[in-house]
Design a protein around this nucleic acid. Structure first.
Lengths: 157, 157
DNA sequence: GAAGATTGATGAATCAATCTTT
DNA sequence: AAAGATTGATTCATCAATCTTC
């Protein structure tokens, strides 16, 4: 059940990066723009999405949140004028979320500072030759979580 | 300023793992034990610490939090009987935090389930031969953040 | 009844202001 | 005044309960 020594080493390093980086990203964003890290995740997911729109539940899955959290976040961002929503034609249970002009503009303004932070804190001292293997390792982990994770787990008994 | 294509690939994968894994860890812990992920971080940091005790600000640094967050968290955990604190001899401004017997016991009970989740979601499909390079890459990133990050940045002008 | 989503209450995180000891 | 830490107010996250459309 326990982790091997080498796995423990990986895990401790991962946790350190995760904890430090979360703080730094959130701090930089709230200081230099009017966006929180949560806001940024939402706008970033919408920008990557086909048609630049997502259902609330798709948005939640994309960001690794529960629906209820996404719902609250969307409501608050809508109130601030960053998002707009409308009922989906064909299935009026679903709501489609998209960024307003103001939302896209806020993201556009915040993106360079965020990217600069990422470059500075994550990539500065990382040798170029290690990028490919790092990418495949992380992609593998992400795939494993997709398969075995519990978020949006619609398995039957 | 922008990231290269390969860097973008690494970053997207990192963010996906970070978002998914945070949710899964927190969910598993709160479901199977009486500890939140934040509680677990605190108890884990104390267990690793020399003498199994840390000042509030050391604890904060270790977990990547601001002092104020650590202070609130310690107060709540003390109320629940998981931690105890005492003024440091020699410098009475500082408070030393340590886990109570109940706190250590709660951690001991929660640890196997947490480790099992980590093994399942992170390491299952990760080839053994990629562990060493993954560890050095993450350790390098952590060192970079230590150097360039803003958390507990005591630089002079 | 199930899928998609929202609401309301409670506990947690963040920011600014404050307190105490050095 | 600076270092170490806490407090109080506001915003955010989480859980359980509910609503609406299929």
């Amino acid at each position: 059940m326990g982790l091997s020594l080498e796995e423990q080493r990986v895990w401790l390093a991962y946790m350190r990066v995760y904890l430090q980086l979360t703080y730094e990203m959130n701090h930089q964003l709230t200081r230099d723009s009017q966006l929180s890290l949560a806001d940024y995740h939402v706008l970033s997911a919408l920008r990557r999405a086909a048609g630049h729109r997502l259902r609330v539940s798709e948005l939640a899955t994309e960001i690794g949140w529960e629906r209820t959290r996404a719902s609250h976040q969307v409501r608050r961002m809508e109130k601030r004028g960053l998002l707009s929503t409308e009922a989906e034609r064909g299935d009026r249970r679903a709501r489609e979320v998209s960024a307003t002009t103001a939302g896209r503009e806020a993201f556009r303004k915040a993106a360079p500072g965020h990217a600069e932070l990422v470059r500075k804190l994550f990539f500065t001292d990382l040798p170029k030759r290690s990028l490919a293997s790092l990418a495949s390792a992380l992609e593998q982990v992400s795939a494993t979580i997709d398969e075995h994770g519990v978020l949006n787990d619609n398995d039957l008994p």
